[in-house]
């Protein structure tokens, strides 16, 4: 029995990864979208069903409604980023984080428009905002707005402002709590639309929910992680400035995962330190007792991966992600990787090899140079165990290179994709620009959109 087939006897446990599972994911997706909309829209419905004061003009009340909506959307951000595995499963957590970015921008616009309309209608209100006369609840509103503005600027332009990711995460959380807390103080203080006791209860409940979520994410979850440590077994140098960390659970059974999923990794810190980073699992899902991450030296954190030494303690929060062939059963698969985007695809290939899979597989793997091609030797070895064809696409090929070079173009895809391309599932992982370009090229080749799966691993 080969190395890859050795572990195929291990029972593989994942939920919803058969044909019926696909349907379940769609239903579950709609269910969680419904829950999110209820959370965000409830305060507006309450306003609609039980209006408070008599009308003060359309634009006045419109601006008040936007203020309420923006605040409830801010509250819902805590739910979005709490990483509830069941809620994230139908979408993939990368999509939820991108949704968080965009919906935060929408909420910010609503909240900015709220005082803008009021000041436009009643410029005299500016007088009430002078520091000598400002009321405490108005001050809370102003500080909330300033905090929120800082939050948005530092999030949208973090890299341009050269803010370290770890520091940004801590300040992002603190600013978010401050902005929401002060917005609720502002609403309660103004009191016009929350006069009845049950409306006050509603806002108190929203505040309590946010507080509970905060306790769960920042206290309970890290405590659980602390009790489930991992040990770094090996740090292996790979081609292309990449390193593979081999981790084993210590005193617990670890977790099972679908091939292609990822986890948040904490190194050199306690889980309370908020210094965790998402990485794809590059090892086989059939060997959950030995989890591997292959990490390329790209940023502040990843450049220090080589300094990790065997015996160090690590913590893993996972598995997450919807990028897995187990979610979309097919007769054959096509994988397209760019750079270190090979990591989750390697996890899938290793899993398929461990399962003794005989389906037809095509890997198109784009990289800068032949020498730097991560997993070069192992891919050649995998060909002996799988019905796998590998097409390397090099940016800077060596002089005697006979293979493909340049970008993954329509012509290149036409040369290598199987004839019955509609019968395959396509998995793309790489830089955002490459993924978008290849996705469009696949569409032009006639691949249905629902058969193209991608993951954006630039969550930071």
């Amino acid at each position: 029995m080969s190395d890859y087939q050795r572990t195929s006897a291990i029972r593989f446990r994942t939920k919803g990864c058969n044909g019926v599972g696909n349907m379940n994911y769609v239903q579950r997706g709609f269910f969680w979208v419904g829950i999110y909309l209820c959370l965000v829209l409830t305060p507006l419905f309450v306003l609609l069903l039980a209006p408070g004061l008599s009308g003060s003009g359309f634009w006045w009340d419109f601006s008040i409604a936007l203020g309420f909506a923006g605040t409830s959307m801010m509250g819902a951000m805590f739910v979005l980023t709490a990483r509830f595995r069941h809620a994230a499963a139908p979408f993939g957590i990368d999509l939820i984080y991108y949704f968080h970015r965009w919906i935060a921008l929408v909420a910010f616009i609503f909240i900015i428009v709220h005082p803008a309309i009021l000041l436009f209608l009643e410029p005299v209100f500016l007088e009430d905002l002078r520091i000598s006369v400002i009321s405490w609840h108005m001050l809370a509103g102003v500080i909330s707005l300033i905090t929120l503005t800082i939050l948005m600027v530092t999030s949208l332009w973090r890299q341009q402002l050269k803010i370290h990711y770890d520091a940004w995460r801590i300040w992002h959380t603190l600013f978010a709590i401050t902005a929401l807390g002060l917005a609720i103080v502002h609403i309660e203080g103004v009191g016009n639309y929350v006069s009845s006791p049950w409306k006050r209860i509603l806002w108190a409940a929203i505040s309590a929910c946010c507080l509970i979520l905060l306790l769960y994410v920042r206290l309970i979850k890290p405590l659980v992680l602390l009790r489930h440590p991992y040990r770094v077994e090996q740090v292996v140098k790979e081609r292309g400035d990449a390193w593979t960390l081999v981790l084993r659970p210590q005193g617990h059974s670890g977790f099972t995962f679908m091939p292609g999923q990822f986890a948040w990794l904490t190194l050199r810190n306690s889980p309370f330190a908020l210094k965790e980073h998402p990485f794809s699992i590059s090892s086989s899902a059939m060997q959950p007792q030995e989890i591997q991450f292959t990490i390329k030296e790209l940023g502040d954190f990843t450049r220090r991966i080589k300094d990790v030494f065997p015996g160090q303690t690590a913590y893993l929060d996972g598995p997450y992600g919807a990028f897995s062939m187990d979610r979309h059963p097919s007769s054959d698969y096509v994988f397209i990787a760019g750079g270190i985007g090979i990591a989750p695809i390697m996890g899938m290939l290793r899993t398929l090899a461990d399962r003794g899979d005989s389906r037809s597989l095509l890997l198109i793997y784009a990289y800068k140079t032949w020498e730097g091609l991560t997993f070069q030797e192992e891919l050649e070895k995998l060909k002996e165990h799988l019905h796998l064809r590998v097409v390397y696409v090099l940016d800077t090929p060596p002089d005697n290179w006979q293979g493909e070079s340049g970008f993954i173009t329509d012509e290149l895809l036409a040369r290598h994709l199987p004839v019955a391309m509609n019968q395959h599932e396509y998995y793309l992982c790489g830089p955002v620009v490459m993924t978008a370009m290849v996705e469009k090229a696949l569409r032009r080749q006639g691949v249905p959109l629902h058969q193209i799966h991608s993951e954006i691993f630039n969550l930071a």
């Binding site: 999110y36 609609l48 209006p51 003060s56 991108y98 978008a436």
Partner: peptide, 30 residues
């Protein structure tokens, strides 16, 4: 596609909320 989907979902939610806010303002002054 995933980036686009995230944008569309956020935009749709935003428009829905905007409509509800307008409805509230309308009925408050009806």
């Amino acid at each position: 596609m995933r980036l686009f989907l995230a944008k569309i979902l956020a935009l749709t939610t935003g428009i829905l909320i905007l409509l509800l806010a307008a409805m509230f303002a309308f009925f408050q002054n009806y």
